[in-house]
């Protein structure tokens, strides 16, 4: 099977001003090569400042890369714009960290899920589709939640609303940027289970970005470890977590919290 998305020597430099006239460059990503296949969850792991969110934003075209190429189903999309970019954006969707900020407080949950269906000119019965999506993310019964507003439901449910919203467009790729770090411990596992379920049922590829190795070990098939913009280690999750080679990966594993450990 072919990759859904693949990057080739992706590099991103940010410019910062130093003094009055000087400009210095910071490399946020340095020759990053990653790939994602259908029906798999790939983890991008790193501490803050490692460039993991920059990578996500480049993949959804919120940032432009400085150099390097992005392939979507073997087609070079590095320079797409206009209509073809719009089409591509339907295929790749992003879930953000803060479910409290990503929903509009003035609108009902039904509105949030309906919007993408309307704007994408969904051809079938919109109400049926909304019910189907809400059932998929386990916001059941749908009637109970439809007319509620974001502040009336918990953080975990808000994250589900957001997931239903992005699934409305039938994307082939989901990018989840720290989707559970703002949630309470008791709600995290449900959202992670939901991601696995979506992967299995819809066969889509998910990129899961996090600094938390514990959750990575639970949901991902493969991981890439990023450090200062470079991929320092990649491979199957189990292999890396049990026998890491890179010093940075070892430090991350050492720092991962575990109630059965003692500091």
């Amino acid at each position: 099977m072919n990759e859904l998305i693949r990057t080739e020597n992706l590099t991103k430099e940010f410019e910062t001003r130093t003094g009055f006239t000087g400009i210095s460059k910071i490399k946020a990503l340095d020759n990053v090569n990653i790939s994602l296949f259908p029906n798999e969850i790939v983890g991008i792991v790193g501490a803050s400042g490692s460039g993991k969110s920059t990578l996500a934003k480049i993949l959804v075209f919120l940032y432009k890369s400085t150099s390097g190429k992005i392939y979507f189903k073997d087609e070079d999309i590095t320079k797409i714009h206009g209509k073809s970019l719009k089409k591509y954006r339907k295929e790749i969707q992003m879930i953000f960290q803060d479910p409290y900020a990503s929903l509009d407080p003035y609108h009902s949950i039904e509105w949030h899920i309906k919007r993408p269906l309307l704007t994408s000119h969904y051809s079938g019965n919109i109400d049926d589709r909304i019910d189907e999506l809400m059932n998929m993310v386990k916001l059941t019964p749908p009637e109970y939640y439809k007319n509620k507003f974001p502040h009336q439901v918990s953080g975990g449910q808000r994250q589900r609303v957001y997931i239903a919203r992005v699934l409305a467009l039938n994307p082939q790729i989901l990018i989840a940027d720290e989707p559970v770090s703002m949630l309470d411990v008791s709600l995290r596992i449900d959202v992670l289970d939901l991601l696995s379920k979506i992967k299995n049922e819809l066969g889509i590829g998910i990129i899961y970005i996090t600094h938390d190795l514990n959750t990575v070990s639970m949901v991902t098939d493969r991981i890439y470890v990023l450090h200062n913009g470079e991929v320092v280690e990649d491979g199957y999750t189990n292999t890396i977590l049990t026998s890491p080679h890179d010093g940075y990966t070892k430090a991350l594993i050492e720092a991962a919290s575990d109630p059965y450990k003692r500091i």
């Binding site: 439901v153 411990v185 008791s186 596992i189 190795l213 514990n214 639970m218 049990t242 991962a256 575990d258």
Partner: peptide, 18 residues
């Protein structure tokens, strides 16, 4: 319900509600 490295979770009993 705390995910841990190297520990497989076999459908743990979950808390209900919010």
């Amino acid at each position: 319900n705390i995910p841990r490295i190297g520990v497989k979770m076999n459908n743990p009993i979950k808390l209900k509600g919010n």
